[in-house]
Computed example of a mutant assay.
Amino acid sequence: MHHFRTLPAALALLLGLAMPAARAHEGHDDGPAAPPAGAAPRFAAVSDRFELVGVIDGRRLTLYLDHTGDNSPVQDARLELDLGGQAVAVARVGEGLYQAELAKPLADGETPVTANVVAGGADSDRLAADIDWHAPAAAPGKEGWTRTTMLAAGAGLAGVALVLWAWLRGRRSAAARMGGAA
């Protein structure tokens, strides 16, 4: 009976020791956190009247145009967009929602964005922003099981096997003692 109480604690201890600790190494502990892998480049251009947010996914550009004061979508607006000196054809797909197809994927570095907004015939504004984007580098350790990970996993499995073997041996020995006494 004594082995039943110690088995979970021993397993937890072995598994905890087998897991490699995550640590920052030199040069990785200062500066702002990197955006999540796969995060799409985006920009926001704001004026007193309008707010334009653009999200780029490869060659597709999705634009959200809202009123700055109440964040409501701008109804029936016309949007002209210049991205890095190139005019980009924009199509309205919903209230305050626009899409465009870029001729080529966004280049690394800063790209200026200028948008002319005309809403309701008389309400117009020019918005400007920059997209600062850099292609994601291959993340280290993402190529699969590393040697260290395989060794840690093997050590953890060996430890679990050892604990199970000891527990089963103890049960057999206790059963033999109880069977011999009866």
Rank of each mutant, 00 (worst) to 15 (best):
P105Y: 12
R147S: 08
P112R: 03
T146K: 00
D132H: 10
G109N: 03
G121H: 13
W145C: 00
G85N: 07
A153D: 02
A138W: 11
L79Q: 05
D125W: 03
L79E: 05
G141C: 09
A137E: 15
S124E: 05
E101L: 12
A153Q: 05
L97F: 05
N116D: 08
E143K: 13
R126S: 13
S124P: 00
T111C: 09
E143V: 04
A139M: 10
T114S: 14
E80F: 09
G120H: 12
G144I: 03
K104H: 11
G94R: 07
G84A: 11
V113A: 01
E80P: 05
W133S: 02
Q86I: 13
A107Q: 11
G121F: 13
E101P: 02
A139I: 07
L106T: 01
A155L: 14
D123I: 15
P112I: 01
A100R: 13
V117I: 03
P105C: 02
Q99N: 12
Y98R: 04
A115E: 04
L106N: 01
W133L: 00
E80N: 14
T146P: 00
G121N: 14
A135W: 08
E143P: 04
G96C: 02
D123P: 06
E143R: 13
L106D: 01
E80Q: 14
A161S: 03
Y98F: 12
D108C: 03
V90G: 10
D108Y: 12
D82W: 01
A158N: 07
G156H: 06
G94M: 03
A100C: 10
A100H: 11
A87L: 04
K142W: 10
L151N: 01
P105E: 15
E101M: 10
V160S: 06
A89S: 14
R92E: 14
A89P: 08
A161V: 07
G120N: 13
G141I: 10
W145A: 07
L127G: 08
P140K: 13
G156D: 04
Q99P: 09
A103W: 08
V117Q: 01
G120Q: 09
D125L: 08
G144K: 05
W133K: 00
G109E: 02
A91Y: 04
L127V: 07
E143C: 06
A139D: 06
E110N: 11
A103G: 02
P105I: 04
A135Q: 13
A103P: 06
V90E: 10
V117D: 01
L151M: 09
A115S: 09
G154I: 01
T148L: 12
E143N: 13
A129L: 05
L102T: 09
W133P: 00
P105Q: 12
G94Q: 06
